[in-house]
Design a protein around this nucleic acid. Structure first.
Lengths: 219, 219
DNA sequence: TTGTTGATTTCGCAA
DNA sequence: TTGCGAAGTCAACAA
């Protein structure tokens, strides 16, 4: 990894065109030749960048980075204040816990909280327009499709609605009910769901991990 | 901006939990106290980070960054190989060209590619649920609503469907047809559009800029 | 390889 | 402040 502090101007030509006027910035060149141009603010997103795979052509006062599909990042170097390199090695990588797939696993393993005699048909139940997170049957044997989100917004309700519309065309499955489950359900999403006869379920991740059934509330 | 090369382990506790085992990494502390943890690969996204606004508590061998809503990033510093600071000043910012609004302008100026005698009624045609990108009339005088996306996915078809449903309630406008136009249309979006009687149009930005009508293909 | 979905998405604009 | 839509989204995973 090479770190350069330089007064530079930058041009990008790819899906769009973008230009950065002359200013002092941090330039990062990673081991795979990818380049990041950072300012001293904003968030983690660079002002401009080139993703790997790419090739860096270093000329005096000018770097030209060319991407896989021909896009180019051109950096004009006016003045270099610092330039240092380090060998960091390969990173062991990030370990995450608490994302949507975990919610799906937990709810799949706790079908009983939905009601007596409910059972899981399968996770990621395939349909032509994408997989239903959980397909199950209630005590009476009727189909129920469950869409799980970390944050329940209108898009998720629309997604579940599409699944239900399609599934209900199949006489072997119909009628299929829907449940919209999320750690947090936005008011607009809740209203839309209820308007469409879809039940809402608020999930509590920590409590589910502890298998505390009281944490699940059906609306 | 402060740049630190250090052997460190990192823990994040917020919406999710994440952990980085001990390894050599680049730590960036920006002027607003936001922190980025980068490895020597991957893309522009850091392995871990804290977005502003946040507060950095620097203890010996440990940094604790606390975010606005209480999330924390804890960095345990095992060994520091480099540590330098720079004053970059405020960046003048990025100038972009080639985004969705430009596609809208270009298509609005090239109505004839849709067919003989087509004309534009107006761009950003207002409805109670949001503006229709382009409203036009075909040679027979029938209304056509056009939704433009850079990448055409299912959400865009849903959006256009909502507009059409609403517009078709107005006897002065009905029947209103729909066209879904994008630089790239995903298969599922195309299927959904066709199922709903919405035509798909693939746009080529470069050719449109050159006003090459042959670049537009109606499906 | 291609396609689809989730994300600590981030970012910008408008109501 | 909140909500909605776009992004050079990125990244993980399945077909």
């Amino acid at each position: 990894m090479r770190l350069v502090i330089a007064r530079c101007s930058v041009n990008y030509a790819g899906r769009l065109s973008a230009h950065l006027p002359l200013a002092l910035r941090l330039l990062i060149i990673k081991a795979d030749s990818s380049v990041l141009v950072h300012a001293d603010g904003g968030s983690y997103k660079p002002l401009n960048w080139m993703s790997p795979p790419c090739r860096l052509d270093e000329q005096p006062g000018r770097w030209v980075v060319t991407g896989k599909s021909g896009e180019t990042l051109t950096i004009e170097l006016e003045e270099i204040l610092a330039d240092s390199s380090f060998d960091l090695g390969i990173d062991p990588g990030l370990i995450k816990d608490g994302v949507e797939s975990h919610l799906q696993e937990l709810l799949a393993a706790q079908m009983h909280v939905l009601g007596e005699g409910w059972r899981l048909v399968r996770r990621e139940y395939p349909t032509p327009i994408g997989p239903v997170d959980l397909m199950c049957r209630d005590a009476a044997g009727a189909c129920v499709a469950i869409e799980i989100k970390r944050r329940g917004e209108i898009d998720g309700v629309e997604q579940l609605t599409r699944y239900l519309e399609l599934l209900n065309r199949d006489p072997l499955l119909a009628p299929v009910q829907g449940i919209f489950a999320a750690q947090e359900i936005k008011p607009q999403a809740r209203i839309l769901a209820q308007d469409r006869g879809i039940r809402c379920l608020v999930l509590d991740y920590d409590s589910m991990r502890g298998a505390d059934d009281g944490a699940l509330r059906l609306f």
